[in-house]
Nucleic acid binder design. Structure first.
Lengths: 199, 199
DNA sequence: TCATTTCCTGATTACAAAGTCAGAAATCTT
DNA sequence: AAGATTTCTGACTTTGTAATCAGGAAATGA
């Protein structure tokens, strides 16, 4: 699938011939359905958009809960989705580092609204005294990049540690680690204690 | 400089003509000094290798300190170095996601030994009861990707939040956040308390 | 059934970028 | 200074790949 190739290799390393082969059609057929390579890329990204929208929908239900609760839910969802669609995190990482037109498109159509919403939640949680007072944007990015690090870097982990991070056990450990250690590190003592008293 | 181009754009998007222009030489001159593009890439990476070696040297001095102390030092160093040489984190992210021959080369010559050393420190710190007992490899990767997230994603942050993460104030906040919230989240209560009593 | 539109292919073009090579310019050696 | 060696360049070839196009097959509608 095109999405998979784009996310694993990045825009430039992907060839239309390769996508065509994987899709078992001829290369000009791609030009028929999508005008050019960029349009094809955008189309693949919009498929991911549906996934993000789904997440938004689930969070919407909890919009009256305290910000810190919503954030924890969002982290959990983010992990689930990142596992199910590893392409998403890789794409964001690739384009987010490079900058340029495609990043701006992604921002407008996929990730921008979600990230700004997250930052708003963090700001709220800080005001509530539940999250330590660091720049909300930095908190969001650090939580997200930290959470998907192990997922994105699967090839590196395999090479460097000769270990498979995709076994069920490794995934379970990772989920716990992200929610407990990573997310937990941003909690204030107040929020941490509240959690311990009401588990 | 070639390093900068490679890290910002990735191997494929970089053209020899572009590097030649930036270096104010002709394109064939590159072929004279380095046989081909891959060799040029490797050479650029080895320049980064010197940076890593420097870090190793500084840490070597503290090898008798407790693992947790060494880890904190390593995080601090890692941040400094990542700021000074943003190319490093971007390259690792790019190749670490993609896998392949270049990743294996990087592992062997640059990042593998360091990461395995870090994992060993984490294992030790867990045994000491200072770090929460999660898979050491995952801890290392999560700490590293979380720490450089804001640095690597500078373009995304600018686009999404219309905010500059490279001002002195933003950097100072980021340093604190990484060492306090990110790293702190992996500490056990024991280690956290020990730190509070002896600041 | 025929006509028309939709979908797709093989063959080809256009172009960008890696890599080659013969020889010029600069530098070093004695 | 003369020769030898190193360093570099302009012009070229080769290759990989995006994009085009004329036309054929398949579906759709009358």
């Amino acid at each position: 699938m095109a999405l998979d190739q784009f996310s694993r290799l990045g825009f430039e390393r992907v060839t239309l011939a390769g996508i065509a082969e994987a899709a078992k059609v001829s290369q000009p057929a791609l030009h028929y359905h999508f005008q050019d390579k960029l349009q094809l890329w955008r189309s693949a990204m919009l498929d991911l958009g549906a996934v993000i929208a789904e997440e938004e929908r689930l969070l919407e239900v909890a919009r009256d809960a305290p910000a810190i609760t919503q954030l924890r839910m969002a982290m959990r969802l983010f992990l689930q989705i990142s596992r199910k669609h590893p392409a998403l995190g890789r794409i964001v990482a690739l384009e987010g580092m490079a900058g340029g037109e495609r990043l701006e498109w992604l921002d407008r159509h996929l990730i921008g609204p979600r990230n700004r919403r997250m930052a708003k939640l963090v700001r709220q949680a800080i005001a509530d005294g539940d999250i330590k007072p660091y720049p909300p944007e930095q908190v969001v990015i650090t939580l997200e990049t930290g959470a998907v690090g192990v997922i994105n870097m699967t090839p590196l982990i395999r090479v460097t540690f000769a270990t498979d991070p995709e076994t069920p056990a490794a995934r379970a450990a990772h989920d716990d680690m992200v929610l407990d250690a990573l997310f937990g590190g941003f909690l204030t003592d107040k929020a941490r204690n509240a959690r311990e008293n009401a588990p």
